[in-house]
């Protein structure tokens, strides 16, 4: 399987976020960590960019909970650390954006 897991740990206003969304391929996996979780806020322009990217989007539960966005990320998949590990196993490569 030739899917890349991108981890994004930077706010949606960052160039890390915009570069990641521009350069990932449709069908890649995108896991939002740390400040990256804000990109998933339902209804935001950033969220629209996420949805348009064609990536399968995940958020890490602990980070989304800490940020207070857990109830505001409808439509993305919330995963825990075990889910993160499983994702790394499913993807051939990983790339960290921060």
């Amino acid at each position: 399987m030739n899917v890349i897991l991108h981890t994004l740990n930077a706010s949606p206003a960052s160039s890390a976020c915009s570069d990641c969304l521009r350069l990932l391929a449709s069908g890649d996996a995108l896991l939002l960590l740390g400040d990256g979780v804000y990109a998933a806020l339902a209804g935001s322009a950033d969220r629209a960019r996420l949805d348009a990217s064609g990536a399968a989007v995940y958020v890490l539960d602990t980070d989304a909970a800490a940020a207070g966005v857990l109830s505001r990320v409808d439509g993305v998949t919330i995963i825990d650390i075990d889910g993160f590990v499983a994702l790394t196993e499913q993807c051939s490569r990983q790339l960290a954006w921060y």
């Binding site: 030739n2 890349i4 521009r22 350069l23 990932l24 391929a25 490569r93 990983q94 790339l95 960290a96 954006w97 921060y98």
Partner: peptide, 17 residues
């Protein structure tokens, strides 16, 4: 360009940011 960069990600075995 963006497309060439996406391609480059796929042409390497390990990606470090």
């Amino acid at each position: 360009d963006s497309g060439q960069i996406s391609e480059m990600f796929r042409n390497h075995d390990q990606l470090l940011g």
